[in-house]
Design a protein around this nucleic acid. Structure first.
Length: 128
DNA sequence: CAAGTGACCCGCT
DNA sequence: CAGCGGGCCACTT
């Protein structure tokens, strides 16, 4: 008896489910969320994580941004809770300047979140 | 394998 | 407002 032909999953599905590590899926979701933040708006690490479907993963968003090669993501639009810049030294200055260039206004050390909070649309992140 | 660490966050002093 | 502790999870030591 010939071996019954084994059904093969569609390539794309297989790649997503089997080949791609979980962390890569997460990071992709994080990047996607960060790309959604428009000029002049900001979101916190925690909000990005939650919008990407991974609440509690705020630290991972930070780690991604730290490792990500510069130039691809609008990294400066991701801030700490309450609109606080978490980067230190020069990096912190740069982030603030980039935001101010986009019209983001600060009250003291913090961003005026009332005015610049980005609201994610949940349905855009229902994965696959 | 345990302990420490981080572009975090929240609650409580 | 500052500092501390606990929580979180992956990575490093």
């Amino acid at each position: 008896m010939p071996r019954p032909a084994r059904k093969r999953l569609p390539r794309e599905l297989e790649r997503r489910l089997l080949r791609v590590p979980k962390s890569a899926r997460r990071d992709a979701a994080f990047r996607k969320a960060i790309h959604q933040i428009p000029r002049g708006k900001v979101a916190t690490y925690g909000q990005v994580a939650a919008a990407a479907g991974y609440p509690l993963y705020h630290r991972h968003v930070a780690r991604l941004l730290r490792n990500e090669p510069p130039g691809r993501l609008p990294w400066h639009r991701v801030v700490g809770a309450g609109g606080e810049i978490k980067l230190r030294y020069d990096a912190g200055i740069e982030q603030r300047m980039r935001l101010e260039m986009e019209g983001v206004r600060f009250r003291g050390k913090r961003i005026d979140m009332e005015a610049h909070q980005h609201r994610f649309r949940p349905w855009e992140f229902e994965e696959f």
